[in-house]
Design a protein around this nucleic acid. Sequence first.
DNA 1: GGCCCTTGCTAAAACGATTTGGCAGGAGTA
DNA 2: TACTCCTGCCAAATCGTTTTAGCAAGGGCC
Lengths: 337, 337
Amino acid sequence: MRGARRPRVRLRDVAERAGVSPTTASFVLSGRDMRISEETRQRVLRTARELDYRPNLAARSLRTQDSRTIGLVADTIATGHYGGELIRGSMTAALKHGHRLLVCESEGDPSLQSALVEDLVGRQVSGLVVATSSHDRVSAPRGTGGLPVVLLNCRSDAPYPAIVSDEVAGGRAAAGLVVRAGHRRGIWLVGETPPSSLPGTGRFEGIVAELAGAGAVLDEQLSCKWWPEAAYDVMAQALAGGGRPRAVVCLNDRIAFGVYQALAEVGLEVPRDVSVVSFDDSELASWLRPSLSSIGLPEFEMGRLAVEALLGTEAPPAERLVPMPVRARDSIAPPAV
Amino acid sequence: MRGARRPRVRLRDVAERAGVSPTTASFVLSGRDMRISEETRQRVLRTARELDYRPNLAARSLRTQDSRTIGLVADTIATGHYGGELIRGSMTAALKHGHRLLVCESEGDPSLQSALVEDLVGRQVSGLVVATSSHDRVSAPRGTGGLPVVLLNCRSDAPYPAIVSDEVAGGRAAAGLVVRAGHRRGIWLVGETPPSSLPGTGRFEGIVAELAGAGAVLDEQLSCKWWPEAAYDVMAQALAGGGRPRAVVCLNDRIAFGVYQALAEVGLEVPRDVSVVSFDDSELASWLRPSLSSIGLPEFEMGRLAVEALLGTEAPPAERLVPMPVRARDSIAPPAV
DNA sequence: GGCCCTTGCTAAAACGATTTGGCAGGAGTA
DNA sequence: TACTCCTGCCAAATCGTTTTAGCAAGGGCC
């Protein structure tokens, strides 16, 4: 764009100027303990600094067969905070290992995905993270050419390690908050649990198990899409029918948002009259009044673990269940007498 | 990980198997119209397919001095939807030009930022996008080695093209919604406009200008941090003092959320009693009841334009103002008589 | 035959790093 | 002196592409 692109300083330039061979310069700069006199070492280092030498990583990759890059192929990277934190976690771990992150989005298109994988393999990435936002079973990427692969937020039939959130434990935690506040009756669940959705079924399973273990019962289950509008409708209808919950477990924060609105309209106060707990710990949870207790998604940690599985020294387990953080806030109180 | 990493198929392997020289194979595969007989061409293509040949992009980069990669250095990539959409936009544009995106986060640490820039330059990226989430003046990245740089969501004193949202026009659009609904009096503004914040001052400027142009007045200006809690507090206090707005312009959706709550508590209904408009068009805006009219952030488009400025054919302007999309929803109505 | 084109292909030199296998020269030892 | 070791450095091969320059064979033309 601006000005003539001056030719980059090469290792050879540094070597010549320092009066040594490229070999020596390379040894000095890569810090390997070959027998180099301290004086020569300093001279090379100084020269490199003077010339502002920056190694050409393409050349290095070619020679060492190691690009110090890992590829992240996601179906969607912009689902709320989700994608961002996943990327951040992956990047942080990659950075720690001196790697960079090549981020791609396939928009769920399988042919685009395989094209991307192919390209990344061609770029000699050291490993591949395949992520989804929908958290379920996925067909394993093909044509990875024997490259290490880690699945993020999904599983597959291929023998790739998978990093997923521990939804069952999360479900237990959510129900646990309600149970420990003293609730045993009048507990409602809001949100559908489609069979294909791992988070849904996992959460549900955990909730039911925890309630059963505490001798509590799930009085009502309102099925609806995971959106405020839908949750509001189904909740408002149930309340209009005369039902009165003491605690509501929502399958995500957006549902809880709708539930809050429906409760407010019939004059029920959270948490005095009704306790509410949900999942995702999105920003919404802390904005609501009263602030919403929510079981968070360990996105950052999952991203981190995925890259760590690729780059770390220890072999990753076939399936890593990442615990979901529990954010207890003001939306839960003991049942009124 | 699994199995022996079989050596990758090289161009030379394809050439040998097809009985031609690497030169010929290269010409065929890169599709250049050197004089190659159709028969030979087909043979090479077939062989490449059979062997599942994938070119080594490190070698290609080294030779062509072109990595087909662009680097994105952000201070924070996980600010709500913001970062995700920026990345998506950048990636889409990069993909269109056959490039990939190397994503880095500096966490606002200048020394980390320059280390990252240095690394990316070493990786021979074709260009650099430097993005911030805070949208203001930034010190230009150093040590870019003459690489093309585009600033995203910020400006600097260096002569780099900048892509920023047109906050002033956005401000006019927000006020315009209110004005066109017929409001001239009882218009409030909520949210502080710190001098350092470009979006704040830009929005404010546009709002004031539009109102003035329509002969409307800004009756009240409530200053508060851009968070629901703070906005609720300041709004509730103003309402308790007896003030009654007919229209409220909020500097972002989170503020509007707090305002909604404060209005509801004193029995004012949106939009019958009070119209509300705000900025960001976050998910919150469509979840609120009634749905919130909001001036969106053109994140995707900005990311796209940044990369397009680097890779596109036409020279980018020094400062590109990207229009903010107007999302008119249910929170605005004509003033009651 | 002698000359020049055209066609279809190839040899070899880059690109810029890393790394193997030495090579001088001095010191130590017998 | 002759042999061996060690120190400090370097020549050259290598990674897998792209690309310049040119070669051989065949045909047309005079």
